[in-house]
């Protein structure tokens, strides 16, 4: 019997390392990839912040990106948040009906949940798909067609020229879209509660459970997600290599990593704010 660690005399193939060595190699390689990826991401973030303060922005560049990110996402966010709002309230209403058939706190609880978490998290996950994919595809295409090299030849740093307008626009428009999406989700939920369970709109629209902690938490999440999506997607775009296949990979990576960033940030910010603003 031929051992896994011995070479085959017939083929002259290199001996395969034992399983535990290969496993260690795989884990080590993945850890290094993660480390270098995180280091590059941090570098992109730090340089973006630097150029936000020190960079020379093109006239109208940020406004154009605000239109791209904000206005063009409006219908998408409205429809998805409206549908999610209806589904959530309907499901919550069904559960409430089974346990304690009292809907007086349905709206207040829902509003607290929306402001503190759901509006920002769900809205940002939607934006991660639309905006993140768009940023990575556009920048990735510019990388593979050497337009980013041409920018560098023109003394325009790609971070300053391409990423900073998207970063600023995303910070502003993510907050705007989340407030809008949250409002749509709340209104859609209120109508669902009224139609399905007969909850009066005035009862549903209660802000009794809302406090400053919820508002601050929601606001922090808006800012954090608005910053994370363009940074993660821009990094994916700038690290594109190869041709159109590379752009495809960059786009996929942008959507996956942006969504992951939103979820991880949600966990971190939620944990911190539950400590800072206990219920």
């Amino acid at each position: 019997m031929v051992s896994a660690t011995t070479a085959s005399p017939a083929t002259g193939a290199r001996p395969r390392a034992p399983v535990h060595v290969r496993l260690a190699g795989f884990v080590g390689g993945a850890s290094l990839d993660l480390f270098f990826g995180a280091r590059d991401l941090y570098s992109v973030f730090a340089r973006t912040l630097y150029y936000v303060v020190r960079g020379k922005r093109e006239r109208g560049a940020t406004l154009r990106q605000m239109h791209e990110i904000g206005n063009k996402s409006l219908l998408f966010v409205t429809v998805t948040m409206g549908c999610i709002g209806m589904i959530l309230v309907y499901q919550a209403g069904l559960q409430t009906k089974r346990v304690i058939p009292d809907f007086s706190l349905l709206g207040a609880t829902y509003l607290e949940l929306l402001v503190r978490d759901l509006a920002a998290s769900l809205g940002s996950l939607m934006l991660a798909t639309r905006v993140g994919a768009g940023i990575a595809a556009e920048i990735g295409s510019m990388v593979v067609t050497e337009q980013v090299d041409a920018l560098r030849m023109c003394a325009a740093d790609p971070i300053d020229y391409l990423l900073v307008p998207r970063f600023v626009a995303s910070m502003i428009m993510t907050a705007v879209l989340i407030v809008w999406g949250g409002t749509v989700a709340f209104v859609a939920g209120g109508l669902t509660a009224y139609v399905s369970f007969g909850v009066p709109i005035a009862t549903f629209a209660s802000i009794g459970l809302l406090d400053w902690g919820d508002l601050i938490t929601g606001l922090i999440k808006c800012v954090a997600y608005g910053a994370a999506i363009p940074i993660v997607s821009g990094h994916a775009g700038l690290s594109t290599f190869g041709g159109s296949e590379g752009v495809g990979w960059a786009t996929t990576r942008a959507v996956v990593n942006s969504s992951l960033a939103v979820i991880i940030l949600n966990l971190v910010i939620s944990s911190a704010t539950f400590v800072a603003f206990p219920k």
């Binding site: 067609t145 050497e146 337009q147 090299d149 041409a150």
Partner: peptide, 9 residues
């Protein structure tokens, strides 16, 4: 530098 595919923006 003039790039191979012109690379205009």
């Amino acid at each position: 530098m003039v790039f191979q595919h012109s690379t205009l923006f």
